[in-house]
Structure formats: structure tokens, C-alpha cells
């Protein structure tokens, strides 16, 4: 059966889908998995930048779909991990250049060769979202701990259910334990209480993320980065490992200890 197709999506924009795709992809590759990342955010491509691969782009997803390039030609090999590839999005086209059926066909061609196919979805509920989730075996929904992002995540989960997909698993990104403790930010418990789906990862706000995206070296590769650790944990959970939710709260550990109990971690 080959690869598992995992789509990373969100309702609200800018919550961290591209960051998650890059970091989880690199973490999987670092663990010896064969991985291909597909940037489905046509017109607003980003993943190549975050991966540090922009300068190697010759062909893109739309070139493949429209027959100007073979699939192989559009696959950019990562310099450090030879079994990690990126298929970039087109920058000058829009989402209608690709259909859900194209995405299914494309991933079917790749399934035999890879362990994981990660698809970076655009935000929202339009065509780009439908393209990205059409071939998905698993969907990861990224949200931030704020009411509007959670509301939009709820909408996405509803759409997945209406399309007979699994409701997906949740990634809470940019959590600030201190803000949660001050009740200025929704806690993971409050978020799961609203959404009623499983959490696969909680990623803290981390000042390393923005510079690392700019330099094209994902934080997964930074041993001390707490966000990097969270992304590595998500990769291991995707591979079926039971990884306890780490204690991010160095002051007391209280908040995250509670969460790990809640979700069956250590």
C-alpha cells in the first residue's frame, strides 16, 4: 500500500501549516523515512522558502499537472536528507489550475516509493483546501490557542466529516504556557472540549521559529528548540509511537503534566 498521505490544513490562515509541514517532514526524514512534501498552496508558495530550497526550483506542481514536466523533474531533493523531496507550488497561477482528481492521481504515483507524503494546504474552505484533502489518509488540523482560530478549525472538522473523511487530529501551535496560566489564552483542555478531536501535538511559541524559516533550516534540526522537540514528537506519533506530551512549562510543569495525563501520555 506504500505511503501514508497526510494533509496539514487549517481554517484560519497563518497559524503554522507550512512551518508544521516542513518541520514534521524533516523530522520524519531524520528518522529514516522516505518523505515527499507537496506545497498545495498554489499562488502563495512558501514551503520551498521554509525548506531553503527555493533556488533549486525549475518545475512546479502545475507544470506536472499540465504535462509540461514529468513528476520526477519537479521533485527537489533535500541537500541534507537525500530521501526527502519537495514538490513546489506554482507561484504565478491560482488554485483552479489543479483539481482534487489531479491531486489523487499525483499522490497515487508517489505512494509506491515513499513512506510519507505530506501536503501543505492553503487556509480556508475553498478549492485549494479541497485539492489538499482529496488524497489524504490522515488530516492534521493546525490551530492557535485563540477563539477565532479554534472556531475556524471547528468549521474545517465539520467539512471533513461532511465529506466522509475522518475528523482529523489537532495541532495546537504557538501555545504560551504563561498566558494560559493567566487565562489570557485558551488551554489545550478548553480547545479539545470545544473541538472534540484528538490532539497529536502541542507546539509552544518559540522565538527560533521565525529566523529558522527565514534561513531555511527548520527548528526540528535544533536540538534545544522546544518547538523543534514538539515537531519531532508529532513525527513519532505519526509513526505510531506513544510519545508522552512533554512538560514545556519549566517553572512548575503543572500545566503540561495535567495535559499529558489528559491525553494518555506519561
Amino acid at each position: 500500500m506504500g505511503a501514508k498521505v497526510v494533509t496539514i490544513t487549517s481554517g484560519k490562515g497563518g497559524v503554522g501549516k507550512t512551518t508544521t509541514t516542513a518541520n514534521v517532514g524533516v523530522a520524519l526524514a531524520k528518522d529514516g523515512q522516505k518523505v515527499v512534501l507537496i506545497d498545495a498552496d498554489i499562488g502563495l508558495r512558501n514551503l520551498d522558502l521554509v525548506m531553503g530550497l527555493e533556488k533549486y526550483i525549475v518545475y512546479d506542481l502545475v507544470d506536472v499537472v499540465e504535462g509540461r514536466a514529468k513528476l520526477r523533474q519537479a521533485m527537489i531533493k533535500h541537500r541534507q536528507f537525500p530521501e526527502l523531496y519537495l514538490i513546489p507550488a506554482a507561484q504565478t497561477r491560482d488554485k483552479t489550475a489543479v483539481s482534487p482528481a489531479d491531486m489523487i492521481q499525483l499522490t497515487d504515483q508517489l505512494r509506491g516509493e515513499f513512506d510519507y507524503i505530506l501536503i501543505d494546504s492553503p487556509a480556508g474552505i475553498e478549492r485549494g483546501f479541497r485539492n489538499a484533502v482529496a488524497p489524504a489518509d490522515d488530516v492534521l488540523i493546525v490551530t492557535n490557542p485563540e477563539v477565532s482560530a479554534v472556531r475556524d478549525a471547528d468549521r474545517i472538522i465539520g467539512l471533513l466529516e461532511a465529506n466522509h473523511k475522518e475528523p482529523g487530529q489537532l495541532i495546537i501551535n504557538r501555545l504560551k504556557p504563561e498566558a494560559v496560566r493567566r487565562k489570557e489564552m485558551l488551554s489545550p483542555e478548553e480547545i479539545t472540549d470545544i473541538l472534540g478531536i484528538k490532539i497529536i501535538g502541542i507546539v509552544p511559541e518559540d522565538e527560533n521559529v521565525v529566523p529558522s524559516s527565514n534561513t531555511g533550516v527548520p527548528v526540528t534540526l535544533m536540538e534545544q528548540s522546544r518547538a523543534g522537540q514538539a515537531f519531532r514528537d508529532i513525527a513519532r506519533r505519526l509513526m505510531g509511537e506513544k510519545v508522552p506530551f512533554m512538560s514545556l512549562d519549566d517553572a512548575s510543569g503543572g500545566l503540561f503534566k495535567r495535559i499529558s495525563r489528559l491525553f494518555g501520555g506519561g
Binding site: 472556531r151 471547528d154 465539520g158 466529516e161 470545544i194
Partner: peptide, 23 residues
């Protein structure tokens, strides 16, 4: 459960077995 963005309309009574989420 009715998630955000869903709308149920009926001329009669409506019974929901599940939550009606915000939105």
C-alpha cells in the same frame, strides 16, 4: 454535533443529539 458554519432550519421542532457549537 453541529459544528461552526452549519445551519439547520425546519418549520417544526428540532431535536439535536449532540452539541451545537459556536458558529
Amino acid at each position: 454535533t453541529l459544528r461552526s458554519g452549519r445551519s439547520v432550519k425546519s418549520p417544526g421542532h428540532v431535536v439535536i443529539f449532540g452539541d451545537v457549537n459556536a458558529g
